[in-house]
Measured scan of single mutants.
Amino acid sequence: IRCIGVSNRDFVEGMSGGTWVDVVLEHGGCVTVMAQDKPTVDIELVTTTVSNMAEVRSYCYEASISDMASDSRCPTQGEAYLDKQSDTQYVCKRTLVDRGWGNGCGLFGKGSLVTCAKFTCSKKMTGKSIQPENLEYRIMLSVHGSQHSGMIVNDTGYETDENRAKVEVTPNSPRAEATLGGFGSLGLDCEPRTGLDFSDLYYLTMNNKHWLVHKEWFHDIPLPWHAGADTGTPHWNNKEALVEFKDAHAKRQTVVVLGSQEGAVHTALAGALEAEMDGAKGKLFSGHLKCRLKMDKLRLKGVSYSLCTAAFTFTKVPAETLHGTVTVEVQYAGTDGPCKIPVQMAVDMQTLTPVGRLITANPVITESTENSKMMLELDPPFGDSYIVIGVGDKKITHHWHRSGSTIGKAFEATVRGAKRMAVLGDTAWDFGSVGGVFNSLGKGIHQIFGAAFKSLFGGMSWFSQILIGTLLVWLGLNTKNGSISLTCLALGGVMIFLSTAVSA
Rank of each mutant, 00 (worst) to 15 (best):
V494Y: 12
D336Y: 08
K395G: 00
K294V: 03
A264M: 13
R99N: 08
A280W: 11
A165R: 15
L25K: 08
S368Q: 01
E276T: 13
S455N: 13
L141N: 09
G28K: 02
D189Q: 08
V41P: 00
A280T: 14
Y202H: 13
T500R: 12
H148A: 11
G106E: 04
D430S: 06
R57F: 07
G150H: 10
K480W: 11
L441H: 07
M151I: 08
L258R: 09
P354F: 00
D200N: 15
M15G: 01
S483H: 14
K166R: 13
M125A: 02
L204K: 10
G104Y: 06
S51D: 08
G417C: 07
E216Y: 06
A178Y: 05
T254K: 03
M349G: 11
A117W: 05
W20D: 05
Q465T: 09
L378W: 09
E320F: 02
C30G: 04
E244L: 07
M495G: 04
G100E: 05
K239C: 06
S260V: 09
F198I: 11
A35M: 07
C488Y: 13
G263D: 08
T156N: 05
T267S: 09
G408T: 07
V364N: 02
W20Q: 04
G282Y: 13
T32A: 09
G232T: 15
H144R: 11
G5V: 06
R164D: 04
E412I: 06
P381I: 03
T366K: 01
S58W: 03
A451S: 14
V31A: 11
S7R: 00
Q447P: 00
L307N: 01
S304M: 13
L269I: 12
A272M: 13
S173R: 03
G334R: 07
G17H: 04
V388E: 00
G436E: 01
H249T: 03
D71A: 13
T156G: 01
L378P: 06
E377D: 08
Y137P: 01
L378S: 01
I445A: 04
L242A: 02
I130C: 06
V23M: 12
V153H: 12
A310M: 15
G408I: 05
T470Q: 01
P222E: 10
R94H: 06
N208D: 05
T49Y: 12
L135E: 04
V33F: 05
T369A: 08
S304A: 07
V6N: 02
N207M: 12
E412G: 12
L467S: 02
G392P: 13
G182H: 02
H210R: 11
L489W: 13
K294W: 08
D384A: 03
L96D: 07
I445F: 05
D197L: 15
V50P: 00
S485H: 06
A452S: 11
T479Y: 09
K84D: 03
D37S: 11
R73P: 03
M421C: 06
R420F: 09
V502D: 13
I484R: 01
H226D: 08
P132C: 01
I468Y: 02
L298V: 06
G444I: 12
V343D: 02
M295L: 12
A310K: 13
K409C: 08
Q147L: 14
S455W: 13
K294I: 05
G29E: 06
M460N: 08
R175Y: 11
C30D: 05
T254C: 04
T40H: 04
S403N: 09
D10L: 00
I496K: 10
A346W: 15
S286Y: 03
G287C: 14
E13P: 01
S455R: 12
T321S: 07
T231H: 03
N478F: 10
S306Q: 08
K283M: 15
E367L: 01
T414P: 02
N238Y: 09
G28F: 02
Y137T: 02
V114H: 06
F108E: 05
G29P: 00
D430I: 05
D87P: 00
R420N: 10
P192R: 00
K246I: 06
S372Y: 03
L498Y: 11
E13K: 09
E370S: 13
D247P: 06
M125T: 12
I387S: 08
A227W: 02
H235P: 01
E244M: 15
K123Y: 02
M34E: 06
L180S: 14
C291G: 01
V303H: 01
S173C: 06
N238Q: 11
P342I: 04
F314P: 01
S149Q: 14
A280S: 14
P222L: 12
D379N: 12
R357G: 09
K294P: 04
V326W: 05
K443Q: 14
I365H: 08
F119D: 08
E44Q: 11
G282D: 02
G157L: 01
P234K: 13
M34N: 08
G78F: 05
D98W: 12
M374W: 03
F218Q: 07
A248E: 01
S7E: 11
S503M: 14
P381S: 05
I466P: 10
R2I: 07
K209S: 07
N154S: 14
G259A: 15
V50L: 07
T95D: 07
L498Q: 10
T49M: 15
W400T: 08
T120S: 05
D189S: 13
S385G: 12
S64Y: 11
T315Q: 02
W474D: 10
V415M: 15
D87F: 05
C30F: 08
Y203V: 06
N238L: 15
R175C: 09
E133K: 12
Q89V: 06
G425K: 06
G432A: 14
T369C: 05
M15A: 01
L307K: 00
H214Q: 09
P318D: 06
K124H: 15
A275M: 05
A80Q: 09
L196Q: 01
A418I: 12
L201I: 15
L376T: 01
K394I: 13
G436D: 10
Q465F: 10
G184R: 11
G182L: 14
R138H: 15
D220M: 11
S440W: 11
T156D: 11
W474Y: 15
E377G: 13
S485V: 01
E370H: 12
K110D: 06
W474G: 05
T414V: 05
R416Q: 04
S7D: 06
